[in-house]
Amino acid sequence: MNLSTDIWVWVGVFLTFCIYSFLYRDNPFYKFGEHLFVGVSNAFTLSFMVHRIIIPILVRPFTEAWRTAGSEGLSAGLFNPYAPSNFLVIIPGVIGCFYFARFIPGLTWLVRIPIALFMGYYVGRSVPAYLEGSVFPQMRGTMLTQASFDPAQGGILGGIFALLVLVGVIGTLTYFFFSKEHKGVVKWGAQTGIVFVMVGFGASFGFTVMARVSLAIGRFIFILRDALGIVT
């Protein structure tokens, strides 16, 4: 046994046991770990946001523009939004402050402006991104072509697997298609779909369990190797 002399290692061990104490039942140690996690993670996010966004993108360009205006006087360049130092960064700052308008009676509607800008832009941007990044590649991957039977892609067996994927995708889509009653051909399609869905859910479950078990092994190795020095 070779006990660690690093304080942080023992902090990590204590916090690990705090969380694992939940296996017995909900208790103050688990709640301590849980609340500490929320507090520290939010503080980390706040620090990161201030040092990576607020200061370099909002405060510094504005203060530098202010300094330049003080020494050289006002110029058109200080009102160019693309310039590294400009006064116009104050506009997004003011729009951001509209989030706090929800606390001012009569002005609560102003909160909709930053929401509209944020949501509108990313909704618009996501439409072609989803089509190009998800719908088209998924459809392209599902299509059965002559290349699916190419010897480099696995030959006949590869083609049969590609056909299975096609049948599975159509079946799954049919199973979740509720605009038509599941009778006749639709019923057969849906029943084929549920087979693929069940196998897929089982595989996802197994994969997730193994990922969690791997994390648990990581914690045990941390305690046994890093803290206690029992294993190498």
Binding site: S134, V135, Q138, M139, G141, T142, F161, L164, V165, L166, V167, G168, V169, I170, G171, T172, L173, Y175, F176, G193, V195, F196, V197, V199, G200, F201, A203, S204
Partner: peptide, 14 residues
């Protein structure tokens, strides 16, 4: 690679 991909693809497309 096969049944899981098919099910996931169908769900993701939807």
């Amino acid at each position: 690679e096969v049944p899981n991909t098919a099910a996931k693809r169908g769900i993701e497309l939807g």
